[in-house]
Every structure is written in C-alpha cells, then in structure tokens.
Amino acid sequence: MADEKQTRKDFGEAVNMTAAKLEAWLETDESKEVGDRSSGESTGHASGRRIIDLLRTKNDDLTDSDHQHMRKVVGYVHRHLAQRPDGDVEDSRWRYSLMNWGHDPLKN
C-alpha cells in the first residue's frame, strides 16, 4: 500500500530517536513529569512506549492500528515543532514532551 509506505517514511523522519534511546528516556523523571494526563501516565509517555514497539516491529507485521498511531505521532511532532519557544530549549518541557513522542529537536 502506497499510503502505508508514506506513513512509514513520515514516521521514520519524525521519530529520530532509537528504540533504546527512547526506552532509556522514558525511565527518566523529566520524561514522566511532562505531558497531558487523564490518569497516571501522560499521553505522550504512553505513546512513547507504543513507539518503541513500532520501531521494533517489522514493516510486514504492522497493523492498521499501528499505521494510525504512526500518523498520530507524525502529526504531533509536526504541530509541536511549529510551537518552538524562544531561547534555549535544552532543558525545556517543550523538548521533553517531544522526546516522549520519539523526537529530540536537538538531534541532527
């Protein structure tokens, strides 16, 4: 499917952290302190755990639900990048939130 191929390409461009880096990040206090939460875990933190699974899943094994979440991640990363605050963002909640979604804006 062309749409699924484009989704995987867009996801690969939006998510610039490896599964291992993202997994380590999600264990930090900084990761757990940011994001919208309706219950105990923030939406972004839960998404980060799902992204780890997606990064470790073979393309042929991805489901429609996986592709839907990949599109959600791409949309979030693009929207959030457009809201970059002024100044140094290295220790910002903005950066930490993006990192929960698998994107480190300071990574080249």
Rank of each mutant, 00 (worst) to 15 (best):
G75Q: 09
D86A: 15
H69P: 01
A46V: 01
A82D: 15
T18P: 09
V77I: 15
Q68A: 14
K58C: 05
V15M: 08
S97Y: 05
W94S: 06
E13W: 08
G75Y: 00
N16T: 09
P105W: 04
L62E: 08
I51W: 00
G48K: 00
D53C: 03
L55H: 02
Q83S: 15
A82Y: 11
L62K: 12
T7S: 15
L55K: 07
D91P: 04
V15Q: 09
M70E: 09
H80N: 05
A2R: 09
N16A: 08
D29K: 14
L81H: 03
Q83V: 04
T18W: 05
R49A: 14
E23N: 15
R93E: 03
D91N: 13
T28H: 01
T28E: 05
D3R: 14
M1C: 12
H78Q: 14
S65K: 12
E41D: 14
R8G: 10
A82F: 01
A19L: 06
H67S: 11
V89P: 08
G48N: 00
G40H: 02
S92E: 04
G102R: 07
S97G: 15
V74K: 11
K32I: 07
N100R: 14
V15L: 10
F11M: 08
Q6A: 15
E4L: 11
R93W: 01
V73C: 09
T63H: 01
L26K: 00
Y96P: 00
L98M: 12
D60M: 00
R84M: 12
R93G: 08
N16L: 10
R8V: 08
R8I: 04
V77P: 10
K72D: 03
A24W: 03
K107D: 11
G44H: 03
T18L: 09
D104V: 12
D64F: 01
R84Q: 15
F11E: 01
H80P: 00
L22N: 06
I52T: 03
